[in-house]
């Protein structure tokens, strides 16, 4: 584009103009490097903070279920389990509903409502997670305790095999409640992302399919979704990254119990909830270090998920030639 300018060619000019350009150029470069350093800094600081814990417990820290601040015995398994279980519950509910909303917005919805509804969902995606948390604590958890959980225990609780998932008393709070709150929180995010992705499908493709006599569902199932598959998976993984690391929506309703229970109605904890609840109360250095080690595990987990999401979304961008 502007390969002849002094900055690009690297020609050392004594003109003051070129010098000021070099200064501004270096300034922007420095700022860009700051972004890089922040991520490296996050990683380095977590590794350093987690070092005492890993030195003490070794790699078995990852699959030890004990979490006892009194005897200073710590392991990551219970919060890791809670993180994975709540995220799975959230994704199982939010992905189909979110895709349904996206299909509704691009296909069935009356034209006059499309823009306002789309905007409403985008705005909802920006609502801070603490709002979902406080609503979950005061409204949703009591509702779960009096209606949903007793119902689940009485019905699915008696079914063999899956019955253990719904065993135990209705606490109200617990992993299912946390997973459902997470689902509500990421729902607008998934829906608006999926809608944006669906809209990248060339109208020509849709119209040709309709011209062949396909029904609306068939067009979406066989044309639209396959066309944007990679990006859709990328978008879903982006939402998964959010669910894994979400703190406030979960902390209020998970119960904060370091235990692994077969029942999704039981209280549990997640990595972020454990850190949020215990970090300022951690009394011994090894306790603090164990919590930072949990943070490191979460960071690596989300990094992998987010990196895979970026890669998939980028592939779609290249395919569509944007």
């Amino acid at each position: 584009m502007t390969a002849t300018s002094d900055y690009d060619s690297g020609v050392k000019s004594t003109r003051p103009v070129a010098q000021s350009d070099r200064i501004f150029g270096s300034l922007t470069l420095a700022a860009a490097v700051v972004v890089l350093l922040v991520l490296l800094g996050v990683f380095a600081s977590l590794v350093m903070g987690a070092w005492p814990a890993f030195k003490e417990y070794g790699l078995p820290f990852l699959w030890t279920a004990k979490w006892n601040p009194v005897t200073d015995k710590f392991g990551a398994l219970a919060p890791l389990y809670g993180t994975v279980v709540t995220s799975i519950i959230a994704m199982v509910i939010a992905v189909p509903v979110g895709l349904g909303i996206a299909i509704f917005l691009t296909e069935t919805c009356p034209r006059v409502l499309r823009r306002p509804l789309g905007i409403a969902i985008e705005l909802l995606a920006g609502i801070p997670s603490i709002i979902y948390g406080i609503w979950g604590l005061f409204v949703f958890a009591p509702f779960m305790q009096s209606y949903i959980q007793p119902f689940l225990i009485d019905t699915l609780g008696h079914v063999p095999v899956i019955g253990t998932l719904f065993a135990g008393p209705p606490y109200g709070i617990g992993m299912l409640t946390a997973g459902l709150i997470l689902a509500m929180m990421i729902l607008p995010f998934i829906a608006s992302l999926a809608r944006d992705i669906f809209q990248t499908v060339p109208p020509m493709l849709r119209e040709s399919a309709y011209g062949m006599g396909m029904t609306r569902w068939e067009v979406n199932r066989h044309i639209v979704i396959p066309h944007v598959r990679t990006a859709l998976v990328g978008g879903i993984m982006l939402s998964l990254g959010r669910a894994l690391g979400e703190t406030m929506a979960v902390t209020f309703v998970i119960g904060n119990a370091h235990r692994i229970s077969g029942s999704i109605l039981a209280p549990g904890t997640t990595i972020s909830a454990a850190i949020a609840n215990e970090f300022t109360e951690a009394t011994t250095p090894i306790y603090t270090s164990s919590l930072i080690a949990l943070g490191l595990v979460l960071f690596i987990l989300t990094f992998i998920v987010l990196a895979a999401a970026q890669w998939m979304l980028k592939r779609m961008k290249q395919k569509s030639g944007a």
Binding site: A32, T247, S272
Partner: peptide
Amino acid sequence: EYGRYAKLSKVIRFVNDILLSAPSIIVGLF
């Protein structure tokens, strides 16, 4: 602008997108 075609820009774009969705509690720990 300056680094539009630089390799560094690609790296930073990737890093930036990770930071964009990284759990905020991790930033607190950092």
